[in-house]
């Protein structure tokens, strides 16, 4: 196969391969390696809090727009962009509308899971009307893409317990994972952290240990969450956990303040504390997580 044909072929199959050319017109080693092993790259954004207008970030729409612009400018478009919740601040229709206007500009397919700020008043419909799940249901779901099994969980349904999956979801998860081989890379998305990151601030999932036990047998598991507006990583066996930055404003590191909540920084420092995350998964390798700030 001639090089030109090969390029057209990978472009046409859309296998998520970075077929970058070096200055001399030759394919780079990375691009070839990724083409051979099969890989997937995607972007995670989180905690946009559209409607928030306090000093910690007077213009959260502008910073979400910055994230969308930065992602759209990536030379290799991600296979999808996932937003891990708290799209809005107060679940108001106009806030969902603004969020949708901005997020729908993404060139890559968009997947959104809810945070507790999107479910205020136990009104689940506003969220799911604005951001329908891929299969149309109003609950958790999973899908397979490029050899990876992706699971989108919802741990904000029960408002009396911040971070709860519930028995229905755990039963579903058990069945869903039973169909996967141990070597299949698994990526799980949640809003609140799945493990007890800092429970006294509500940064936990009460029954998360049950889900973690189900994930433990797999060779390569990545759990990506939001909620805490900062990057915290953690490892348990083969499971790698990483919370993401917000696009809106940071929160204090666990235990460094009396309470969680918006952390007010000078504008230039704010832009160094918020951003988006690029993730590359290659079979046989731990996920490469690259957190990119706006400044």
């Amino acid at each position: 196969m001639q090089r030109k044909d090969f390029l057209e072929h990978v472009a046409w199959t859309g296998a998520g391969i970075a077929y970058a050319l070096s200055a001399g017109g030759l394919m780079t080693g990375t691009a070839l390696a990724r083409g051979v092993t099969g890989s997937i790259d995607f972007v995670q954004i989180s905690d946009s809090h559209i409607g928030f207008h306090q000093e910690a970030n007077p213009d959260v729409s502008a910073t979400l727009q910055s994230a969308v612009n930065a992602i759209n400018a990536l030379p290799d478009q991600p296979k999808f962009v996932i937003h891990t919740g708290d799209v809005t601040h107060l679940s108001k229709p106009e806030q969902f509308g603004t969020a949708k206007d901005i997020l729908s500009q993404l060139r890559a397919p968009l997947i959104v899971i809810p945070g507790e700020h999107d479910f205020i008043g136990q009104d689940y419909n506003s969220f799911f009307q604005a951001f329908p799940t891929p299969k149309g249901g109003k609950q958790w779901f999973s899908w397979d893409q490029n050899g990876t099994h992706f699971v989108a969980l919802i741990n904000v349904f029960d408002f009396e317990k911040m971070g709860l999956l519930g028995n229905d979801q755990l039963t579903w998860l058990k069945r869903d994972l039973a169909a996967q081989s141990r070597s299949t890379p698994i990526v799980v998305f949640t809003h609140a952290p799945l493990y007890a990151l800092f429970p006294s601030w509500g940064w936990t999932t009460e029954d998360g240990t049950k889900a973690i036990a189900m994930l433990q047998p797999f060779d390569n598991v990545t759990v990506l969450s939001g909620h805490i507006h900062q990057v915290v990583t953690h490892q348990e066996g083969n499971i790698r956990f990483a919370t993401a930055d917000a696009t809106a404003y940071p929160q204090p590191a666990p235990g460094t303040a009396d309470k969680p909540g918006p952390l007010t920084l000078p504008h230039d420092q704010l832009l160094r504390a918020i951003g988006y995350r690029n993730v590359v998964l290659e079979k046989g390798h731990a996920a490469a997580i690259d957190d990119r700030r706006f400044a």
């Binding site: 700020h117 008043g121 969680p260 007010t264």
Partner: peptide, 22 residues
């Protein structure tokens, strides 16, 4: 008075506010 939003919800369900902004 916080920058963060809060709600007021009775455990019994007797009353429930909407999200209270700053």
């Amino acid at each position: 008075h916080d920058q963060e939003a809060h709600t007021v919800v009775a455990q019994s369900g007797a009353f429930k506010s909407s999200g209270l902004d700053t």
